[in-house]
Amino acid sequence: MKREKLRVEPIKDGTVIDHIMSGQALNVLKVLKIKSPSEETVSMAMNVSSREMGKKDIVKVEDRRLEKGELNKIALIATNATINIVEEYDVVEKYRVSVPKFINGIIRCKNQNCITNMDEHVVTRFKVESKDPLSLRCVYCGSRTSSVEFL
């Protein structure tokens, strides 16, 4: 095995998120609400050489099979990310993330006067109007945004 591949060891069980755009690994953890201190064992590689992408990030979450709906939110910041579900060192499921129709609770509405930005504990909700280029509309105030700001 090449030295490059040993940077992050294979995991026995869990979820591997590969082909993350370089520099987005920390945001991926944010989207997945994996914060320190976390219960999961998480390994991360940033700026790893990639034949397809030049440079990429990788995130491995051990002993946790992340749900598809949860993982698809990653597509907002890493369009080409691939998901590998691992069991007993074998990849049992592999797919590319795709942007969901609605995004709940992870993005801030850019409209400062939106009810979601008031002290009301309203969970933000955006309708994905276009995937490429990305265009989201706040379900509450109707503001449209193409840039994502995480809560």
């Binding site: 006067n113 939106c114 009810i115 979601t116 008031m118 009301e120 509450y140 105030c141 109707g142």
Partner: peptide, 23 residues
């Protein structure tokens, strides 16, 4: 005064909400 207040109210109200102007 907040944009989207009426939509939010409609999600938690048992009766229909009419928006009389939000933000």
């Amino acid at each position: 005064p907040s944009d989207g207040a009426a939509r939010y109210a409609s999600e938690i109200s048992d009766v229909p909400i009419i928006n009389g102007g939000d933000g």
